[in-house]
């Protein structure tokens, strides 16, 4: 993470968002679309791609203009740029698929307030040249898309017995209705976070001596992760 002191390769820039700083599973950012539109894998993919598009192009433009933008009006400028790309995405989705547009509803317009984007603009794009900024934004976008897909696939498989609209278990599958309702989003997100926390704790069990009095899963969910991530975690939330 120390861009100023160490040369960071493009690959590392890309991987940061996909894995180490995954916006959904590590930073827990952008929860509003994450919970709301992931009723199916296709919706999740649509939302992820739309957000990635906005991320990459607004970060690119902001990075290009970073020397011209006075710091007093930088947030206003960022928001204007982000809002522009959100509007573009809005038109393009309508042109590609009205069905997807109806399914995503107001959440397309709400990309503008997704804190991942403003967070990236302020924390990264404003301080780096266009290429690394765009690569880093692409990584974040891919990481976000992966996070949404992880939720969307589980919810669609359990909630409808399908994946990307393809029936998996035959006609007699009993859908778990709760999974396509709002609580299902929370359950599945919680499950994924639990899984990653458990995995991170197992991985770090060696040198960092485990908690003397091991906590049950739920309470312990965040403890080991804080040790591994570099505290950047919650800055943009």
């Amino acid at each position: 993470m120390t861009m100023s002191t160490k040369q960071v390769t493009n690959m590392e820039q890309l991987l940061e968002g996909i894995w180490k700083q995954n916006p959904v599973f590590v930073m827990v950012l952008g929860m509003c679309p994450t919970l709301a539109v992931t009723v199916s894998a296709f919706n999740a993919l649509g939302m992820g791609v739309a957000t990635s598009f906005v991320l990459v192009f607004s970060c690119g433009l902001i990075s290009l203009l970073r020397k011209q933008i006075p710091k007093e009006v930088r947030i206003a400028t960022y928001i204007v740029i982000i809002a522009t790309f959100v509007t573009l995405v809005d038109y393009i989705i309508q042109a590609v698929s009205l069905a997807l547009y109806d399914a995503l509803g107001a959440f397309i317009q709400l990309i503008v307030v997704n804190c991942i984007i403003l967070g990236r603009a302020e924390a990264h794009a404003a301080k780096n040249p266009p290429l690394p900024a765009m690569v880093n934004a692409l990584g974040m976008g891919i990481g976000f898309t992966i996070g949404l897909l992880a939720l969307g696939s589980v919810r669609e498989i359990l909630g409808a017995g399908k994946l990307f609209g393809i029936t998996l278990f035959g006609e007699h599958f009993q859908p778990w209705v709760v999974m396509v309702l709002p609580p299902g989003g929370f359950f599945v997100l919680g499950g994924w976070l639990l899984l990653f926390a458990w995995w991170a704790r197992r991985k770090n069990a060696g040198p960092r001596s485990p908690h003397p009095n091991p906590l049950p899963e739920g309470e312990g969910a965040n403890v080991p992760l804080r040790g591994t991530s570099d505290k950047r975690g919650h800055h943009g939330a």
């Binding site: 204007v80 698929s97 009205l98």
Partner: peptide, 28 residues
């Protein structure tokens, strides 16, 4: 700065709007 960024964004939006309009109408 704000004015020129806004103007640039305006041009972008109008261009994409015109580009996608027929497709959106046909889709509807």
């Amino acid at each position: 700065t704000l004015g020129s960024v806004t103007a640039l964004c305006g041009v972008l939006i109008v261009a994409v709007w015109q580009w996608t309009l027929p497709a959106i109408a046909a889709n509807k």
